[in-house]
């Protein structure tokens, strides 16, 4: 009996300590997979969960303990904002799409138009993933959707999965952000997407309504929007948050 009581007490103590672990000033940032390398450079002291923005948004909707949400589009944080689940999102950076092919270029691709060739193994992100819908936008803009989409062999859960499948040489090509292509430059070759066909890739950031560290979360957002944060983003190849005129 006493042993049982002791076991119960230990279990309660362990559960309580696990719950208490989150009471430090460290915040939890849910961020798009494309920010995996740059966010820890901006602030290395926070806890990060990187993934497809759509997956992260769904998790926040299900009550995940996030303090900040940084998405690879504006739509997802805007939707959370409209459901009172996060603050009004602001654009904190922009990006552009490129095509990556393995360094060995097994399908011998030299431009986006080569993606129409039969037998090319193209990997893109899933329909709900921001980079997945940007990819469809590009193909639509260039009138290539009908001829290129039949070559898609997999729809991955986030941009870094696309990158990995191409870098491993398993796929012939994939659509990623230009910043992702830089991360694994040694194993990749980049094909450009024409500027006129580029979608509007804006990253939105907001403070999650359920956050228990609102002021720390706001401080983090400020850091990302601030001079140093923006410089880090630009150094990693991201575009400045407002488009320069002319």
């Amino acid at each position: 009996m006493r042993v049982c009581a002791a076991v119960v007490l230990v279990v309660i103590a362990l559960t309580a300590s696990a719950a208490n672990a989150s009471s430090s000033a460290q915040i939890t940032v849910y961020a798009a997979a494309s920010l995996t390398n740059v966010f820890p450079q901006i602030d290395g002291t926070q806890r990060y969960s990187f993934g497809g923005s759509n997956t992260l948004a769904a998790q926040i909707q299900q009550g995940a303990p996030a303090d900040v949400f940084a998405s690879a589009n504006m739509t997802l944080p805007q939707q959370l904002f409209e459901k009172n689940l996060c603050s009004k999102p602001v654009v904190f950076t922009r990006n552009r799409l490129v095509i990556v092919v393995p360094k060995s270029n097994p399908a011998k691709l030299s431009s986006i138009y080569d993606l129409r060739r039969k037998g090319v193994k193209l990997v893109i992100a899933g329909p709900g993933v921001p980079v997945g819908s940007y990819t469809l936008r590009v193909l639509k803009n260039m009138n290539l959707a009908a001829s290129v989409l039949p070559n898609v062999v997999s729809r991955e859960t986030d941009v870094r999965e696309v990158l990995a499948k191409v870098a491993l040489g398993e796929a012939d090509a994939g659509f990623v952000y230009s910043t992702d292509a830089r991360v694994d430059a040694a194993r990749l070759r980049v094909l450009k997407v024409p500027a006129w066909a580029q979608p509007k890739v804006q990253y939105g950031i907001c403070v999650v309504a359920g956050s228990t560290h609102k002021s720390d979360a706001q401080a983090f957002v400020k850091k990302v929007l601030g001079k140093a944060g923006q410089a880090r983003l630009r150094a990693a190849g991201f575009l400045s948050r407002v488009k320069k005129k002319g």
């Binding site: 899933g126 709900g128 898609v152 062999v153 997999s154 729809r155 859960t157 499948k165």
Partner: peptide, 16 residues
């Protein structure tokens, strides 16, 4: 990978 009607099994479809 995961592609509807080709490699997307039920668990992969649940995830997507």
């Amino acid at each position: 990978g995961s592609l509807q009607a080709v490699t997307q099994t039920l668990p992969l479809a649940i995830y997507s």
